[in-house]
Nucleic acid binder design. Structure first.
Lengths: 351, 351
DNA sequence: CTTTTGCACTCTCAGGTCTAGAGTGCTAAA
DNA sequence: TTTAGCACTCTAGACCTGAGAGTGCAAAAG
C-alpha cells in the first residue's frame, strides 16, 4: 500500500508540532497557522521556525494547505501517522462505559441486539454506527420445523448457528398433513442437525438419486420439502445495520448535499460498506480506514473505525463507526473497542 | 379545517390562468411572471391584465411572491384548489403499469412484499416511498409453536392474521422437554387458534386462577409457557417501511442541509409519519396532505400522497409517497392509486 | 548551522457599489 | 374592461476594496 511512514524519520520536534497541529485541527476544524501553533505548542519557537517545519511536513505529504494564506490541515497520510504513532488513547468516562453496558443488556434476539448496538455506537460517538453480521460460510443447522399454513403453503423455520432464526414460506405441489410434516421434520432433524447447510443441500441431492426407485413415501416427501426449503438463496437476510446517519449531516466537511447524497446512497446499497467491513474482519483488533485509503471515493473526508467481535475466540462479525476524517480518534477508538468486546460477552451469555 | 375554496367563486378565466401557472411552476420550479403566463396561456391577454388577475389570486391566498420582483408561486391553499378542482389525471404509461405489476409479484413473505412495494413507489416517482402495515387492534392467532433452543430458552413462533410470522425467544424458570412443548402447543392451538390475541392473554390469566390447585402438570406447564409467550409487548414489530429518501436530496426546494436533516430524522423516528398515515387510513381513497396542512412543520414544502390498500374490503394498511409540494400530482396520484389496488390483489392471492 | 526578524506577497472573506433584468403596481388612455 | 406606459423594487451577478491571516524568502542574529 502506502509506504509506511516511520516516525523515526522525523525529528522529535517535528513530530511534536505535527501532533499539536492535528489535535488542534480535530478540535475546531480550522486550518492551523504557524502563529497559532507557536502559541499552542510549549516549545518556545517563533512562527517563522514553525513555518519551516510545516513546509517540511508538507513536502512529506503529511500536511496540505487549502490555499496559500490558510493554515495547514492533515492529509490522510498525516492522519495515518497520527493514529499509528502519536495518538494517546484516552480512558473512557465511566458514564460512557456504563451506557455501553446498559445498551448491551442481553435480551431480545440477535438482530434486536445488533440494532441496539448500532444505535448505541451512533449515540455515543455522534457519528454513524454500523454492525455487520457476516454471511458466514459455515452455517450449522440446529433445528428445522415445518408448519402448514394453508393447502399448498408451508412455513419453514430453521435455526442456524445457535442464534439465528430464519423463516421462509414455500409453495409445494401437493399438500401435506400436519403429521406428515411432523414426520418430515423429525426425519430431517435426526439426519442433519449439527451439519453444515451447504453440505445438507448436497446430501439431499445425493439422497434423491439413491431413493429414486424406493417407494418410501415419507422419504420422498421429506426430500421434496427439504429441497424447497434449502433451495432458496439465503443471502437475502439482513446482515448490515446502520444508525445515526443523520449525525453526519452536522459535520461541516460533508455539509454539501451532493456529497451527503452519495454517502447516503452508499449506505443504502450496502455493497461497498460490506466490502470494506469484510476487509476488517480478519484484522486482529481495531482497524482504521482513513479517507481515500478505503479505496472508495464516497469515503473521501471520511474515516471508518472498526473492530471485529467474537465469542469463544470465533469471530462473529464486525462493528464500527463512520465519520469525518477529522474525528476524535482518541475517544472513538476505545468506544468501538470496548463495544466490540462487550458485544462478545453479551452474545456469549445468550447461549 | 381550512375554509374550502369553491372553484365557482372564481371566474373561468382566473381559474384557467391559475391552472396554467401551477402547471408551469410544477414544470420548472421558477416563480411565474405575468409575461410568461401571457405567452403560455392561449387566452389573448396582455401581461398587465394578467397582473390584475394574479393580484386577485394573491389576495385570495392562492398565490404568493417570494419578493416584489419575482413571479408568483402557488401556496398550499393554491395547490389544494389545483388538486381538488383543476387537476386532470394522466393515464399511466403502460410501461409503468407493467413495472408496478412486476414489482408486486406475490412471492416472499409479507414484509418482503412491503419492502418491494416501497422501493417501487420511490423508483417510479423518484420521491420517497412509504408503506405502513398498521398495528391492527385485532390480531387473530392462527398457530403457535414452541421449539426448545437450550436448557432454559424456548423459541416461540406465532402466526398471526394469516400472514405475519412472529418469532420470540423466551427464558423460562425450568426447562422443558421437546415432547412437553409439543403437548403445550397442541393444547394452546386447540384452545386458542382463531381467537384474538388480547383475548388469549386474558383467558390465560383467568385459566391460571381456575387451575391454581388442580395438579394437571401439563396445564400448568402450558400456562407458564404461554404467559411468557404472550406477555412481551408486541408493538416492537416493524410496521413502517421507507425507501428512496435520498431522492429528496435532489429536490431543489429542500436543498439545505438543515431542512433535510430534520426530514430524515422524522423518517427515522417514524412517530410523526405514523400519525399522519393513521389519519389517512380511514379515507376512502387517495388522500393528499399539502405542505403545512399536515400539521407537522417538517413537512413544510412537502406533500404526502397516500392511499389505503385492502383485501376483501378490509383495510390492511396505507402506502404512499412523500415529496415536495411541487410534485407532478397528475402522475403521482395514479401511481399511488394503482399501486395500492395492485398490492391488495397481490396480498389476496397470497392466502 | 539554526533561529529569528522583517517584509513583500498571496489569498480569502466580508462588505460595498453598480448594473442588468425581471416583475410589479398604479395611472391614464383606449 | 383592457391595455400601454412608466416609475419603482428587488435580486443576482460582476467588480472592487480593505482587512486579516498566513506564507515564503532573504538577510541578520545567535
Amino acid at each position: 500500500m502506502v509506504a509506511s511512514l516511520d516516525s523515526s524519520q522525523l525529528s522529535e520536534r517535528s513530530l511534536r508540532l505535527f501532533k499539536v497541529l492535528v489535535e488542534h485541527f480535530i478540535e475546531d476544524g480550522q486550518p492551523v497557522g504557524s502563529r497559532t501553533l507557536a502559541k499552542d505548542s510549549d516549545l518556545n519557537l517563533s512562527p517563522a521556525t514553525i513555518r519551516n517545519v510545516m513546509a517540511d511536513l508538507e513536502d512529506l505529504g503529511l500536511l496540505q494547505s487549502p490555499h496559500t494564506s490558510a493554515g495547514r490541515v492533515p492529509t490522510a497520510k498525516g492522519y495515518r501517522l497520527f493514529v499509528d504513532n502519536l495518538l494517546r488513547i484516552n480512558n473512557l468516562q465511566s458514564a460512557e462505559v456504563e451506557q455501553i453496558a446498559r445498551g448491551l443488556a442481553p435480551d431480545g434476539d440477535l438482530s434486536e441486539l445488533m440494532k441496539r448496538t448500532s444505535n448505541m455506537l451512533s449515540d455515543i460517538t455522534r457519528l454513524a454506527g454500523v454492525v455487520m453480521l457476516p454471511r458466514t460460510s459455515k452455517s450449522i443447522l440446529q433445528h428445522i420445523e415445518f408448519i402448514s399454513l394453508s393447502a399448498n403453503k408451508i412455513l419453514v423455520i430453521m435455526i442456524v448457528n445457535d442464534r439465528e432464526i430464519q423463516n421462509r414460506i414455500i409453495d409445494t405441489a401437493k399438500s401435506y398433513s400436519a403429521s406428515e410434516l411432523q414426520q418430515v421434520s423429525n426425519y430431517l432433524n435426526e439426519l442433519f442437525a449439527g451439519k453444515e447447510l451447504t453440505q445438507v443441500r448436497k446430501s439431499i441431492i445425493d439422497e434423491m438419486q439413491k431413493m429414486k426407485d424406493e417407494v418410501n413415501s415419507l422419504m420422498q416427501t421429506a426430500i421434496e420439502v427439504a429441497q424447497h426449503a434449502f433451495s432458496t438463496n439465503e443471502s437475502v437476510r439482513e446482515d448490515l445495520l446502520f444508525s445515526g446517519q443523520t449525525n453526519l449531516m452536522d459535520v461541516a466537511e460533508l455539509c454539501n448535499v451532493d456529497k451527503l447524497k452519495k454517502l447516503f446512497e452508499t449506505f443504502n446499497q450496502k455493497r461497498d460498506i460490506l466490502h470494506l467491513l469484510e476487509q476488517a474482519i480478519n484484522a486482529k483488533g481495531i482497524q482504521i480506514f482513513i479517507g481515500e485509503e478505503s479505496g472508495y471515493d464516497v469515503f473521501d473526508n471520511c474515516s471508518v473505525v472498526t473492530s471485529p467481535y467474537e465469542v469463544d475466540g470465533e469471530i462473529l462479525g464486525v462493528l464500527g463507526v463512520i465519520g469525518p476524517t477529522r474525528m476524535q480518534y482518541d475517544r472513538v477508538i476505545p468506544i468501538v473497542d470496548i463495544t466490540a468486546k462487550m458485544l462478545g460477552v453479551a452474545l456469549n451469555s445468550k447461549n
